[in-house]
Design a protein around this nucleic acid. Structure first.
Lengths: 142, 142
DNA sequence: GTGACTGCAAATAATTTGCATTACA
DNA sequence: TGTAATGCAAATTATTTGCAGTCAC
């Protein structure tokens, strides 16, 4: 379930972003990413194909990608942060507690729960943040 | 829905923690807290009643309180972190996008969704992280 | 009295910004 | 060619740690 690299690059140039060597390297890493990645992770991987890449550029590019909706922040158990590829308009992540493989899922029907919470609290719910942590098939048999 | 200050202090001393002036001040702020609070927030408030409190102590005390389950981390929209009072064993937070009022709710029946996700992905779900953001009754009418 | 607790200052860590240089379109 | 993008170094911000003095029990 990789992101479409060409499509991503297309989106970038459509929005007026220049397709620099560095940006391509970061985008390629993110597009192939199967686990949650921190900025430092992306930096380390992208430097393999683009050794003169700077960490600053990674931060700047990740911000653009998040803005495009190509990646989404994930919050880890301990509060650390990272990003994971996001293909769906509205999706959530399921992350392996051992190998950090990140899978996206869209099925999050919580409308009944939301209604209950809304009527009980008087809040109007605008967004929800859901993240699941578990063991992926590989990591279940060690 | 305040936390019980005495009960909290009791828990602390039961576990062998000393009830220092500084610790009491931090615990009091957290116990009354109705919004999500960052370490800096807690520091600012607790210093009103304990001006010689240090930020380091706030961090150390928040860690203890999280360990006791009296507070729980929340992740904000922009990735910043904070804490919110947690009375329930297993609960989640609903946070106002305007005034940051934090309400706890326990009703999070997602077992059907979990089953679907598990059978589709092969993962075994271990934990879930759910946070709702919305407008509280007051902030809905400006 | 004594060990846990404290504040301070310094150390870390993660991210952002200023700026002169480079390179895409 | 002109402007956006870059890397670097410095600035910020958030958090943690070392340590000598202090205080709860």
């Amino acid at each position: 379930m990789d992101l479409d690299l060409d499509a991503l690059n297309g989106q970038l140039s459509q929005r007026g972003y220049k397709l620099t060597r560095q940006r391509r390297a970061v985008v390629a890493v993110v597009a192939q990413g199967r686990t949650r990645l921190s900025a430092a992770d992306v930096y380390a991987r992208a430097r393999r194909s683009c050794p003169d890449l700077g960490l600053t550029t990674v931060y700047r590019t990740l911000e653009i990608l998040a803005e495009l909706g190509a990646i989404r922040r994930v919050h880890l158990d301990d509060g650390c942060e990272g990003f994971a590829p996001a293909s769906a308009e509205h999706g959530h992540h399921l992350i392996c507690s051992r190998c950090h493989t990140a899978i996206e899922f869209e099925d999050c029907d919580m409308s009944a729960m939301f209604k209950r919470v809304e009527s009980r609290t008087g809040f109007r719910i605008e967004q929800h943040w859901l993240e699941l942590v578990g063991r992926c098939p590989k990591c279940r048999r060690p």
